[in-house]
Amino acid sequence: MIRVEKLTKDYGPTRALDGISFEVKDRQILGFLGPNGAGKSTAMKVITTYLAPTDGQVTVEGHDVTKDPIGVRRKIGYLPETNPLYTDMRVDDFLDFCGQARGLRGNTLASRRKFVVEACGLGRVLKKNIIELSKGFKQRTGLAQALIHDPKILILDEPTSGLDPLQIIEIRSLIQQLAQEKTIIFSTHILQEVSSTTDRVIIINNGKIIADGFISEIRRDLSDVTQVRAALGASRDSVERELAAISGVEGVSLVGEVNGSVTVELRTSRGQDVMKSVGELAVKNQWAVHELSSPTLSLEDAFIELVRRQTMGKEARHG
């Protein structure tokens, strides 16, 4: 159980986190999503006690990060964004060091090491110096380091960054496997990653949470925004002009123009009405209709829309 209440973190004059609050229950897996520099890593650094909060309260399994950082550290396995490896050490020596530093000894250490080596697929490189490993194996070693003491909570900062597609799938499935018994927070700026790994997602932008919930919920909250996609056999100018004039259409963007067919996307809050109007318009002008649809909002679109709304809200307040 991780509880974050009104967490604020300043780096000098820069506010990296601005009063965020959320909770992660036991055995929940949470995806942190946001553009680079949004505050994902900062939030994780505070939860892992690497940084102290400027304001607000964070507790991990009941331990407060300011009052009892050692208690928090015992519960957490952490893979920072800059994978922390002593590259001049051998993989097995490094894992032993991490295990011992986490208080493991003798048989417990040996059995835990065996487990993480198997889980992370490190058997082949155990006797190699870390500096000789490929990026994928380095990342796995970092993950093994975070797992060695069997922590209840795993904090993974961009665990799949810089890996090739095959390695990404491996790491993802490992995370899903671990999620059965651990509480996990992981961050990413790749949207697809969240939908393929977890249901619960928090979207952070400019140090604020702009969405928190299940992916389906976030989509539903944005259901007032729809897109209508239309491919019409007419000239580009007339399509753009006439469609923009339909009531309820907030914007027209050109997707492409192929063989006399113009494809556009319309932003609107009244999808059904607009679809009908587009149909009527096509009949009236005798345009060929190649496509007329209202695709569901992808996570990508939802994300862009949410970030756009936050930025617009800010401008409205300042303006």
Binding site: K45, I70, P80, P84, Y86, R102
Partner: peptide, 14 residues
């Protein structure tokens, strides 16, 4: 430089 600081400082040690 190599970022192991973050690991050292989140070990359960003073």
């Amino acid at each position: 430089r190599i970022g192991t600081m973050e690991m050292l400082m989140t070990l359960p040690m003073k």
